[in-house]
Design a protein around this nucleic acid. Structure first.
Lengths: 146, 146
DNA sequence: ATTGTTATTGAAAATAGTTTTCAATAAGAA
DNA sequence: TTCTTATTGAAAACTATTTTCAATAACAAT
């Protein structure tokens, strides 16, 4: 069991909730899968290991993970929500290809600094931010049909 | 009729669509209202001027505005979608207060330059981007109960 | 003006995604 | 083992978006 899973267990205890087989599996599967995961995708992955599990349970567990700050929501399109790891993961921004959907994670401290400065100028205290850059990746920008 | 409205009319003609009273009013109301507008809000504003109008028509017109690049979608929460002006409006980023929901529009060319550079390093061709900074505004960060 | 074609409309239904309800079950403390 | 109560899965409810369809209206051609 890794740190994030332990952390989740502690989080559950602290809230006087109970650790169940279902939660354990959902958490394990989620943590074992880097990148962006939709509820449906997570649900079907979990179902392979525990076919009796219900969609609602996966949904609820994902919410708990969010509450525990182990998962965070990312919504590129405004349609289906996706989730990514937050625990033990550095903050990063996203480069998203409009053609193939590929998503590259990027980090740039300078941009973060500028944001901090900009916010200060407006009397703002930053909690988090989200930067998504849309465009065409190397592979796709070579193509004609944009 | 302002430039954006003219542009929309041309866009409509070009696509062999028709200009209707309903579309005219939805466009006028949308353009007359700066900031972030949800479909529901737009619908009720429009209904004041044209009570017979249907939700679907407003929705469809908003889609056309999006297609014409006069409106663009912004989704802070992942819940209800909001729309803002794109035509004749400089690109800007958003500072969003987590407490009162206030949204300040900010512009910073340096951040944009850095993004451009960063994208280039990954062979990416930028089309657009979205930067949202979440935190507490001056008024709200003075309060105790965060 | 009139006509004909077909895009548009409003209301209602359908879809999609998320969230809640509820009776049965199971975790975990005593 | 017993008891309390959180949790579960299935289904229903909800919310927001999108489509369907018959009636209407835009507008090009006459």
């Amino acid at each position: 069991m890794n740190r994030a899973a332990e952390y989740f267990t502690r989080f559950i205890k602290q809230k006087n909730l109970r650790m169940t087989k279902q939660r354990e599996i959902v958490v394990r599967v989620f943590l074992g899968k880097e990148g962006h995961l939709g509820i449906d995708e997570l649900y079907s992955l979990v179902k392979k290991k525990y076919p009796e599990i219900g969609y609602a349970t996966v949904w609820r567990t994902l919410n708990l993970l969010k509450e525990a700050k182990i998962a965070s929501e990312v919504s590129f399109t405004g349609k289906k929500r996706k989730y990514e790891h937050l625990f033990d993961h550095k903050h990063h921004d996203h480069l998203i290809c409009l053609k193939c959907g590929r998503c590259i994670e990027i980090v740039n401290p300078k941009i973060e600094q500028l944001q901090e400065k900009l916010a200060r100028q407006h009397g703002f205290k930053i909690r988090s931010h989200r930067l998504e850059i849309f465009g065409f990746c190397l592979r796709c920008s070579g193509d004609k049909n944009e």
